[in-house]
């Protein structure tokens, strides 16, 4: 069964670095299925929504989530039962997205993040961009507005907001999922939030909120 005509036969490029746990477990098939059903599958809603925010396409999202779960099962012996399954799965998904799906993604190529990050890490940049955005304007916004604002951010900025604000990962977990230092997590979040505020400010103005 395929969801999209471009779906390739299942093939991983998962490296040792992709998984946190280097110590191998030796689960029986029954144990594997148990872990899969009780610790992995419950996260499928979060995974699917994250995949959708990355690809903006239902078929691609399904492919991405399926590939992630198949990889997770295949590499289950690298996972320690009872540890942070959600972070582990998100990391696999993010790597699958970068390796296999980003090329096909309908999103146009975005900014060079290395460059952006270097600039915004320097100390002479404003700690916080002041906007005229008001709390009551924010509270009056509807789902479409916040969704469009979030979707309009470059994928790396969108990602950190999703991981932190929607999925509730800690900075440390995010650092592991994204394979970046915690300092970069923080600065990327800071920048992403400023960009989001700017977008929301545009909506607020069009709604008639002016200071």
């Amino acid at each position: 069964m395929v969801f999209a005509s471009h779906y390739k036969p299942f093939h991983f490029k998962m490296t040792q670095r992709t998984v946190e746990n280097k110590a191998k477990q030796n689960y029986t098939e029954q144990q594997k299925l148990h872990i899969f059903n009780t610790e992995f599958l419950p996260h499928i809603d979060s995974m699917y929504n994250f995949a959708y925010r990355l690809t903006f396409d239902e078929d691609e999202s399904k492919d991405l989530v399926q590939e992630t779960y198949l990889k997770a099962f295949r590499f289950l012996n690298s996972f320690q039962q009872g540890t942070n399954a959600k972070a582990w799965l998100f990391r696999i998904l993010k790597n699958s997205f970068i390796n296999d799906f980003r090329k096909k993604s309908k999103q146009p190529a975005k900014v060079d993040y290395q460059e952006v990050e270097t600039y915004y890490n320097s100390d002479n940049v404003d700690v916080s961009i002041t906007t005229d955005l008001r709390v009551d304007a924010v509270q009056d916004m509807i789902g479409d507005e916040i969704s469009n604002a979030l979707n309009s951010l470059a994928v790396d900025f969108r990602t950190v907001i999703i991981l932190c604000d929607l999925e509730g990962f800690t900075y440390e977990e995010m650092a592991k999922i994204l394979d970046i230092p915690i300092g970069t997590v923080r600065s990327r979040l800071h920048r992403a939030r400023n960009l989001l505020k700017e977008k929301l400010q545009v909506y607020a103005k069009s709604m008639g909120y002016n200071k």
Binding site: R134, I146, L150, K197
Partner: peptide, 14 residues
């Protein structure tokens, strides 16, 4: 403001 944006994301996003 930061808190309200976080809440907006958590409650109103489809």
């Amino acid at each position: 403001l930061e808190k309200s944006i976080k809440k907006l994301l958590q409650t109103k996003l489809e």
